[in-house]
Write a protein that binds this DNA or RNA. Structure first.
Length: 220
DNA sequence: GAGCAATATCGTCACCCCTG
DNA sequence: CAGGGGTGACGATATTGCTC
C-alpha cells in the first residue's frame, strides 16, 4: 500500500516511465465520466484499464544488466537460508530519506540508479543485488490432486475445485511474500547506492573547493 | 490511556508474460 | 495455446507515533 498513498513522497520508481501519474489520469477520467462522477467512486475495473503493466523487477534488472557490459545476468540463487544473506547490502539509511524533498528526488531517480548497483556489483564495489528462489515448499499435508479422470460425482468435482483453489491461493500467497521480499531488497540496494553516491559527491565537491583555492590567484 | 492519522503488512484478485 | 509464475492494485487489518 505504501507505494501509492497520496501523502507519501515515495513513488514507484518505474511508474514514472510506464504509466505516468496514475492519480492524475484517474482524476481526469472521473471528471469526464458522468456515472463515476455521480457516485464519486471510480470503478476498480476502470482503474485497472488505466493502469499499464510494468515489467517485473527481475526483467528490469536483467535488461539493465544486459545494457551494462560485464555485468552478469541475475539468476535464481539456490539459497536455502532465511534472513539477510551475508553478501547483501544492509547499510543503514535513515528512513527520513523518503520524506524529505531530497528523498523524493532520490526515489524518482531510483530506476535509473539501479544500473549503478550492477556496475558496482560487477566491480566489487558493493554487494550484488540478489534474487533468491522461493524457499518455501508446499506444507506437509497438501496432497496432490487426483487425476480428473478418476472423479465421478459432482461432489467430488466440487471438492476438487475447492482444493485446487486453495492450492492456488496458497501458492499465490507465498509468491506474494517472495515478491515483496525481493522488492525490499531491490529498494535496499538502491538506497545503499544512493548513500555511496552521496558520500562520493561530497568528496568531489570538497576536492573541487580545494583545487579552486590552490588555483585561484592571490589578490593582495 | 483513548482517539486518531499515518504507515506497514498481508491475502487476494487480475493481468501479463514466459515456457513447454 | 494452456498453465503457472510474477507482480500491481486493492481492501482489510495491524502497528506506530502523536496529541489531548
Amino acid at each position: 500500500m505504501w507505494w501509492h498513498q497520496h501523502n507519501l513522497c515515495f513513488r514507484h520508481p518505474i511508474e514514472e516511465d510506464y504509466s505516468g501519474d496514475l492519480e492524475e489520469k484517474v482524476a481526469t477520467i472521473a471528471e469526464t465520466d458522468e456515472s463515476a462522477e455521480s457516485e464519486g467512486v471510480i470503478d476498480s475495473r476502470k482503474r485497472r484499464e488505466i493502469l499499464s503493466r510494468r515489467p517485473s523487477y527481475r526483467k528490469i534488472l536483467n535488461e539493465l544488466s544486459s545494457d551494462v557490459p560485464g555485468v552478469p545476468k541475475i539468476e535464481e540463487e539456490k539459497s536455502e537460508e532465511e534472513g539477510t544473506p551475508p553478501n547483501i547490502a544492509t547499510m543503514a539509511v535513515p528512513t527520513s530519506i523518503y520524506q524529505t524533498s531530497t528523498g523524493q528526488y532520490i526515489v524518482n531517480c531510483l530506476y535509473k540508479l539501479v544500473a549503478f548497483c550492477f556496475i558496482a556489483a560487477a566491480t566489487g564495489d558493493m554487494p550484488t543485488y540478489q534474487i533468491r528462489a522461493p524457499t518455501t515448499a508446499l506444507p506437509q499435508g497438501v496432497v496432490m490432486a487426483a487425476s480428473p479422470g478418476s472423479l465421478h460425482s459432482p461432489q467430488q468435482l466440487a471438492e476438487e475445485a475447492t482444493r485446487k483453489r486453495e492450492l492456488r491461493l496458497m501458492k499465490n500467497r507465498e509468491a506474494a511474500k517472495e515478491c515483496r521480499r525481493r522488492k525490499k531488497e531491490y529498494v535496499k540496494c538502491l538506497e545503499s547506492r544512493v548513500a555511496v553516491l552521496e558520500v562520493q559527491n561530497k568528496k568531489l565537491i570538497e576536492e573541487l573547493e580545494t583545487l579552486k583555492d590552490i588555483c585561484s590567484p592571490k589578490t593582495d
